[in-house]
Simulated scan of single mutants.
Amino acid sequence: MTFARATAEGFGLVRRLGNVITPALMVLFSRMPIRLLASLLWSISRSPAIRKSGAAGFGEPRTLIDAMLAAAAPHELPALRAIRP
C-alpha cells in the first residue's frame, strides 16, 4: 500500500506541475483506486525481470524521488518520502 500511495502521489505531482502522463497505460495506472494499484504493483513485483531491474541499486530511485521532492511543497508527498532509499 505504501508504494501504491507513493505512486499516486507521483502521478498527482506530475499533473500539478502541468505535465501530461504518457503512455496511455500509465494514465490507466494513475486513475486506479489505491487498493487495485497496490495489488497490481504486488503482482508485478513477482516478475523476475522487475526484480532484476531493482538490483541496479538505490541511486536512480533516490535521485528521482529527490527531484520530485524538490518540485513539491515541504509538507507534500509523505509516501514518497517514506520509500526513499
Score class of each variant (00 low, 15 high):
29 F>N: 06
22 T>N: 10
33 P>I: 07
29 F>R: 06
30 S>N: 07
30 S>Y: 03
37 L>I: 04
31 R>K: 13
7 T>F: 03
6 A>Q: 03
36 L>H: 08
17 L>A: 12
11 F>A: 02
22 T>L: 15
22 T>C: 10
12 G>S: 13
20 V>W: 10
29 F>H: 08
17 L>H: 07
9 E>C: 01
25 L>S: 14
20 V>H: 15
11 F>T: 01
33 P>C: 09
5 R>E: 08
37 L>C: 02
6 A>T: 01
30 S>L: 05
9 E>R: 02
24 A>F: 11
36 L>W: 08
8 A>C: 09
13 L>S: 04
36 L>N: 07
8 A>N: 04
23 P>D: 10
13 L>T: 02
19 N>R: 13
10 G>H: 04
35 R>H: 11
38 A>E: 01
16 R>E: 11
28 L>S: 15
14 V>N: 04
27 V>K: 07
37 L>P: 01
10 G>F: 01
34 I>F: 09
37 L>G: 01
5 R>D: 06
13 L>M: 08
27 V>M: 08
25 L>N: 13
13 L>W: 03
32 M>G: 03
31 R>C: 14
5 R>K: 15
24 A>L: 12
16 R>W: 08
30 S>K: 02
28 L>M: 15
21 I>Q: 01
38 A>S: 10
31 R>S: 13
27 V>I: 13
26 M>W: 12
26 M>F: 13
37 L>E: 01
12 G>I: 05
12 G>L: 05
33 P>R: 12
36 L>D: 07
35 R>C: 06
12 G>D: 10
25 L>K: 14
5 R>T: 07
18 G>R: 06
36 L>G: 06
5 R>Y: 09
35 R>Y: 06
24 A>K: 15
23 P>Q: 15
13 L>H: 04
5 R>V: 05
34 I>G: 07
20 V>S: 14
33 P>M: 12
18 G>W: 05
29 F>L: 13
